[in-house]
Amino acid sequence: MALLQLRDVNKHFGGLHVTNSVNLVLEQGEIHCLIGPNGAGKSTLFRLILGEHHPGSGQIYFAGEDITTLKSFARIRRGLSVKFQVPGVFKGLSVRQNLEIALQSRLHGAALDKEIDRLLAFLNLEAEQAQLAGNLSHGQKQWLEIGMAIALKPRLLLLDEPTAGMSPEETHMTGEMVRRLNAAGMTVLAIEHDMAFVRQVAQRVTVLHLGQVFAQGSIDEIVADERVAAIYLGQAHA
């Protein structure tokens, strides 16, 4: 079953056609990676899915419902969740409070405390729970934000470069985290440049280029595709 569906989605910024008739179907339960050179329109596509931008034309469906005109918070309440590219944690608040704010609309009292503890363990942030989120290392901030995103128990988790600035070990740990979440039933759409990470988690890969879907398939098919290699080297001008 399709969980998320983009139909002929277009977005212009002035004369720039950043999203050009994109059709994309995300199946329930898959880990799908979105790759492409800088400026391919990946982050814009995320913003369109999240409602931070609205498409000039085309529709976006989530779980069968047309969400094209819904506001961002309403989309989140329907089961979308996101981790931004630049870690968007609440820097002046403690790690624990960051998670509490993400969880409080779903849980209260003792159940809330218990879930915060469980998430802290899952994120390896138990020792840092009283610290201000702004004092965490870059990788820890990334994890905390992933924790806040999954605290909502989303049906679809959007990850914008979840491993940016992470060491190879941290990247691998993040990949394992994503796979565990997926095994528990979460559908994941991730923008990622790190091919080791893509290889570790992706079940399907979509290549975006100049605002268009350029290629789609398994990671092996994408890697074998000479045209894809060419656009990364800047040789194709499709």
Binding site: L50, E52, S72, F73, I76, R77, S81, V82, F84, G88, V89, F90, K91, G92, L93, Q97, E100, I101, A102, Q104, S105, E145, M148, L152
Partner: peptide, 18 residues
Amino acid sequence: NVIVAIRENPERAEMLGY
């Protein structure tokens, strides 16, 4: 909690469904 979250990062607060 939500009020201080908006002060710290309004975009993140909205993307938690508020």
